[in-house]
Computed example of a mutant assay.
Amino acid sequence: MKLNRPAVLVLGCAAALLALTGCGSTGPSTAASAPAPTVTAVTTPAAVTVTADEKANHTTVKVSVGATVSVELQGTYWSGATSSAPAVVAPTGSPTTAPSPSCRPGGGCGTVTTSFTARTAGTAHLTAFRTVCGEALNCTPNQRSYDVTVEVAG
């Protein structure tokens, strides 16, 4: 009997498949006697960090529980930000001040950063204040305060 090339290919593939699945073997099949493994997929949401700077002043930021909100203000004359509702949005530590290396002492160059964690659904205001806006330069009233509303969804 003469087989053409496609028929030989099909028969070869079928034989390989039978060998892999154990069909035609006389011994006990371990695949049939062992229970199928259970695979559980665990999905962990990526940690979300939202950074709010001066451009976010007087705006609303919406986040989910577990998110980090970082308030990063330019100028070391700013106070660290505080939360109006620490049960909703809690600080994760003390504010950090990072002066700019090229700034002369007293120049106010650098950043003040405070980080918070959204703990539960609700609303909180993150606020900061300053009175000085530059070396020997007092801030005008509209430059003295920073306020971002944070809405946390459960």
Rank of each mutant, 00 (worst) to 15 (best):
P28V: 11
P45I: 05
G110A: 11
F129L: 09
T30E: 15
A32P: 00
T96Q: 14
D53C: 00
G107L: 03
V8D: 01
A56Q: 08
E72C: 06
Y77D: 09
A136E: 11
T60K: 10
T114D: 06
T96F: 01
S84N: 11
A136V: 06
R104P: 05
T113Y: 03
A7K: 08
V150T: 06
T44S: 13
R5G: 04
T40G: 08
P141T: 10
S29K: 11
V150K: 02
L9S: 11
T59E: 07
T92F: 01
L11H: 00
R130C: 07
K2N: 13
A124K: 05
V10T: 11
S145A: 13
G93T: 10
V63F: 05
A153M: 09
A56R: 02
G80I: 06
V152P: 01
T38C: 05
T111L: 07
V69G: 04
A67R: 02
V10D: 01
G110H: 11
A98G: 04
T114P: 03
T111G: 06
E151N: 13
A85L: 03
G22M: 12
P141C: 05
G12W: 04
A19P: 00
A46T: 14
T60P: 00
N4G: 12
K55R: 14
L73P: 06
V61Y: 07
H125P: 00
